[in-house]
Design a protein around this nucleic acid. Sequence first.
DNA 1: ACCTGAACACCGTTCAAGT
DNA 2: ACCTGAACACCGTTCAAGT
Lengths: 208, 208
Amino acid sequence: MRLTPALITEATLALGDREGEKAMSMRRIANELGCDPMAIYRHFPNREALLDAVADQIVDEVPPPAEGEPWDERIRAVLTGMRAVALRHPGIAGHVAARPPLGSRGRRYAGGLLAALAEAGLPPADVVRAFQALIAYSAAGLRMAVDAGERDARWHQVSGAMDDLPGDAMPVVGSEEQFEYGLRLLLNGIRVEGRLSTAEGCPQGTPR
Amino acid sequence: MRLTPALITEATLALGDREGEKAMSMRRIANELGCDPMAIYRHFPNREALLDAVADQIVDEVPPPAEGEPWDERIRAVLTGMRAVALRHPGIAGHVAARPPLGSRGRRYAGGLLAALAEAGLPPADVVRAFQALIAYSAAGLRMAVDAGERDARWHQVSGAMDDLPGDAMPVVGSEEQFEYGLRLLLNGIRVEGRLSTAEGCPQGTPR
DNA sequence: ACCTGAACACCGTTCAAGT
DNA sequence: ACCTGAACACCGTTCAAGT
């Protein structure tokens, strides 16, 4: 059977889902496809490029945000959607966390985020800054979740740092709840910046 | 000469500074120390543990925050300080970005951050959540800076997603400026949460 | 009992040799 | 001209054999 980029990325994704990140080696992918490892290099310049393509592919599974929703709700929907999709594909999730998928599919969603941030009232230069901050935070949150799922979970050291804190409900490191809290902080922060730059002032704030 | 953990971490750090992340292999570190690769395993269970120790070691170079400063300034000082130190050690910076150094030295700084967040007026459970959000964001910002310094810099794709935006000053991906903007968003957000939970400030604020 | 280095089971990628 | 698979230059870690 003729080899195509799509066949390769699909086999890679399936292998990663089934056997994890380290199973996605050029040799094992080739084995999966029944071809020579070098055959893959005629469709992708190197392993990194292949993983980028696999990461971009799963973006298709992210549900598009509802049109009528306010800007902050759309941002939340896209970022938690991407997170959920990545966690459904444990093999590639680590790569998504390291390099946000901004291939052709990812680009579409990026446009939606940028539009939402403009709607929030940020000046264009800050739209870009806030966008990058959101992407960076999401990547880090995903990485925490991935690592927390691993056996040796170094992120759990974070709880170790808190031993002397009043014994309170400790959110699970890398949990959905933890991720959403940080996202709320960022959206709070964006709201404040938006208000400042549209000069509506603090006292009678815009809804929520 | 007798091998000690400190000798090993110092040799590893020096090698990484000089020749980058990939130079810090067990074989090359051993070569640097003039010992058998296996000798290292008597001081560290595996390579990951050694890199954790190296990452924790550079925390010593972070200047402690001034005592009199307000909480937000102290948080900014510690996080930008850690970032600066990591960027001074390019070999280990990637590891710091992947796994915040929370060994014995890192723990001390973590305590300072937790205290600052309590001062901001957050309830104890949110102190922990905000702490983890800050650590996650800092890690991601550092990773962007590290990757941006590399030749192939995938993070630059972020700019690619913004082609159709009104041509405005584009902040350099992973730059100090970009990092500080996201930090400001988070601190804005924490301030809002602090006000809500202490029931001061903006009159109509209701927790959601 | 302690230590070491050969060996295992892999990598990504190059490139010369084959068709 | 195209393709392939042997070979290169590495890995982290295990473990048997040596002292």
